Measured scan of single mutants.
Amino acid sequence: TTLHFDLDGKKLQYTGVSEEIARLVEELKRRGVDLKEIVRILEELLK
């Protein structure tokens, strides 16, 4: 799965993300978590 974000005018793309992580990101968005925080979490998970 590939995730795309537009953060402060920067286009971020994460490829090869598992379905689980993609679902987690969608859930965080639904809960109103700040996009910067979501990206920070995502980068930690993908290390």
Rank of each mutant, 00 (worst) to 15 (best):
L35G: 08
E44G: 11
V39M: 05
L3H: 02
I41G: 04
R23S: 14
L7R: 00
G16N: 15
K47V: 12
T15N: 10
F5C: 01
K29Q: 11
I41S: 06
I38V: 13
I21E: 04
L24D: 10
V25P: 00
A22W: 11
V33F: 11
L3V: 07
E19I: 14
Q13D: 06
G32S: 09
I38S: 01
T15Y: 07
L42C: 03
K10S: 08
K11P: 09
T1P: 06
E43W: 04
L35D: 10
A22N: 06
Y14C: 01
D34W: 09
G16A: 07
E20F: 06
K47W: 15
R23A: 14
T1M: 15
L3E: 01
I41D: 03
E27M: 14
D8A: 04
I21W: 07
E43R: 04
R40M: 12
V39C: 03
V17G: 01
E20T: 10
Y14A: 00
D34M: 12
S18E: 04
L46W: 05
I21R: 02
A22G: 09
F5E: 01
E37N: 07
K11R: 11
G9F: 02
K10F: 09
I38C: 03
I38K: 00
G32F: 06
L24G: 10
K36H: 14
Q13C: 07
D34I: 12
H4F: 13
Y14M: 02
I41V: 12
V25Y: 04
L42D: 00
L24S: 14
L45H: 09
L12D: 01
I41Y: 08
I38M: 04
K10T: 14
L28H: 06
L46V: 06
S18P: 14
D8S: 03
D6S: 04
V39W: 03
I41N: 06
V25E: 00
R40P: 04
R23K: 11
L35F: 06
D8T: 01
K10G: 06
K10W: 07
F5R: 00
V17E: 01
Y14F: 12
E19S: 08
L45K: 13
A22S: 09
R40V: 09
G32Y: 05
E26N: 14
E19F: 14
K47Y: 15
V25F: 04
L35E: 10
T15R: 07
T1C: 02
E27F: 15
V39Y: 03
R23V: 11
